Computed example of a mutant assay.
Amino acid sequence: MKNIYTFGRKPAQRNYTVKDLQDLKGSGTRLTMCNPATEAEIRACVDAGIDTLTLWDTHLEMARELAPTHFAGTAMNWGQFATNDEIMRHAIDCMENGADMYFTNRSFEVVEMLAREGIPVQVHMGLVPSLSHWCGGLRAFGRTADEAMQIYQTFKRYEDAGAFACEIECVAEDTLRLLNEHTSIVTISLGSGNAGDIIFLFMSDICGESGHNPPKHAHAFGDLGRLHKQIYTERVAALKDFQTEVTAMNFPYPAQAVTMRDGEREKLQEALDRL
């Protein structure tokens, strides 16, 4: 553990610092990342030894209570804020509340603005789902040398803007492996094979909760979907029994009811009869 001060000037410890992640590039060490969104999911990531977390801002406070030493980034939605001032205010608030990096997929100008203030900025390359209209829909990237070089040029632009890390989504594995040697940016592979510095996968994909048509890069290491179906079936059965018993005037059962003390019912009846 490393002793640090957070961006909010609070003493803390972290399993990894920004410099640690930068120093791990080229070392052969590969880290994990997941996106817990509930108390149970955060606790599970901690107990499972997941290295780094990525969180929405609404989950940051809870994550800092449950995973106080984990390197944890937080994010903004593409359309969450309209102006640069709003983005900057949000980023500063997140960092002061314990985030270790801030994700945005807005313009190079926004990245440069945030980085200029010392904020470790994470960006997004390859398949950016919210911008999929521009590339003809959901598809893989970097499968040709020309497109791989376009990705390389984007890496360089993000380096110049001051980006610290980048989620690389659905880029050819061999493309990322070659380009990773030519960038200082910490690469976070999602669907880009085993070539990133950090391997990221969604909680729902890892745990088998993605339904019948998960993306190609998803791999279920568990089968919580089966358990969710079982829980749903049990829930419906219990609700039906409740409905039936109430309609039949059977529930609440005597065991769930409270009765008057001995002799008190008769006293009450007498009092009522005198009305």
Rank of each mutant, 00 (worst) to 15 (best):
R43E: 14
T144H: 09
P252R: 10
T38S: 15
R235W: 00
E159G: 09
W134C: 12
G196A: 14
V128K: 03
E245I: 00
M101D: 08
C166Q: 10
K229S: 14
L179G: 01
L138K: 12
G193F: 00
A257G: 10
L190V: 14
T259Q: 06
F242D: 14
H217G: 04
R177P: 01
R9Y: 07
L201V: 02
P214A: 08
T38V: 06
V171Q: 00
V111Q: 02
S27R: 01
D85H: 11
P120N: 04
A237H: 06
Y16N: 12
T144R: 05
L176Q: 02
A148C: 02
C94L: 00
P11D: 12
S107T: 15
M249N: 05
L66A: 13
N250T: 04
H124F: 15
T183D: 04
A67C: 05
S189T: 01
D93T: 14
D146G: 11
T104L: 05
P120G: 05
N77R: 12
D51R: 10
E61F: 05
V46K: 04
Y102G: 00
Q22G: 05
S107K: 02
G142D: 04
C135L: 05
M260A: 14
T29F: 12
G263T: 03
E181T: 10
C166P: 03
G79Q: 07
E159M: 09
R139G: 04
E39V: 04
A140P: 00
S107D: 09
R235L: 02
G49I: 10
Q256C: 05
G142E: 01
A67E: 06
E266M: 11
N15R: 07
R177K: 13
E41Q: 15
K240S: 05
K19L: 06
V121Y: 01
I206V: 15
R226V: 06
L179K: 02
R116S: 09
G196Y: 01
M33G: 07
K240H: 01
G222D: 12
A67M: 05
M1N: 07
G193C: 03
D23R: 10
G79W: 03
P129N: 09
A163C: 11
S132Q: 12
E117D: 08
T183F: 03
E109Y: 02
S204L: 11
T6V: 08
M62F: 06
Q13T: 11
R64N: 11
G98S: 06
A255G: 14
D262N: 08
A72H: 10
A140C: 06
N97R: 11
E167R: 13
E109P: 01
W78Q: 07
D197H: 15
K240A: 07
L179R: 00
I198Q: 08
A82V: 12
A161N: 03
V18Q: 13
E173Q: 11
L53P: 03
D262S: 13
R177T: 00
T17Y: 04
M113N: 00
L131M: 11
M260V: 15
V121L: 04
Y16I: 13
E234V: 04
K229C: 13
R143N: 15
R226I: 05
L227R: 13
D93V: 10
A37C: 09
G26C: 13
M88C: 03
H90W: 05
I206N: 03
H70M: 14
R9E: 09
Q13E: 12
A148H: 01
S204A: 12
G208A: 07
G26Y: 02
M62H: 07
D273R: 11
